[in-house]
């Protein structure tokens, strides 16, 4: 997926700030899949992910004026909006209640953090990357990035000391970076 094929990012940002319809269409066509993927990965519910993706684009529309290219790329900014919005919904009480009912109905996905690795197993590129991470690294990445756990929560969940969490997260990201650079 080439995200920067037709617009230089600075130009795209200017067009978005100017409410250019074509720019938003372009943005949707090129980024919606990645943003939807992240949201879906966090919420594990297509229905909820649809609503959240809509919220994400509205937030992008409403907040594009405050986007500062000096603080990071547009893609990262949008990913953070998508991830944070999805995590907020995940943490909201109503979603938890819905999720409980879902779990009772299915009685399958009891271990919520673990299920996400099985969900996208058909995605060849992803599994190729994930295969190169240890199970613990995958869980770390999942808890920290896709579930919004704090370091303390991760420490409890994985039963490892807080100081170790920091080191292992760092190692996980370095390894992820190396894998992605190789592929």
């Amino acid at each position: 997926m080439s995200n920067y094929s037709s617009y230089p990012e600075a130009e795209l940002v200017d067009l978005l700030k100017g409410r250019d319809e074509k720019a938003y269409s372009y943005l949707y066509d090129h980024y919606s899949a990645a943003l939807y993927g992240v949201v879906l990965r966090v919420l594990n519910s297509e229905e909820a992910a649809r609503d959240v993706l809509q919220d994400v684009f509205v937030k992008i529309w409403r907040n594009i004026q405050s986007y500062d290219a000096g603080k990071g790329r547009l893609y990262t900014w949008m990913l953070n909006i998508a991830r944070n919005t999805a995590i907020d919904v995940l943490r909201s009480r109503r979603f938890k209640d819905d999720q409980k009912i879902r779990e009772l109905d299915n009685a399958v996905h009891v271990n919520v953090p673990a299920m996400s690795t099985t969900m996208f197993v058909d995605h060849v590129g992803l599994s190729k990357v994930m295969d190169q991470l240890s199970e613990e690294q995958q869980r770390l990445l999942n808890l920290a990035y896709f579930r919004g756990y704090t370091q303390e929560e991760i420490s409890k969940e994985l039963e490892i000391p807080l100081g170790t969490v920091k080191t292992r997260i760092r190692n996980t990201l370095i390894q992820l970076r190396n894998i992605l650079q190789r592929s």
Binding site: S32, A33, A34, L35, Y36, G37, L79, L126, L176, L180
Partner: peptide, 14 residues
């Protein structure tokens, strides 16, 4: 890296 990871997780929305 995280952007690349997101690319890998990409799912076409409905």
């Amino acid at each position: 890296s995280l952007e690349q990871l997101a690319d890998l997780y990409a799912v076409q929305p409905p």
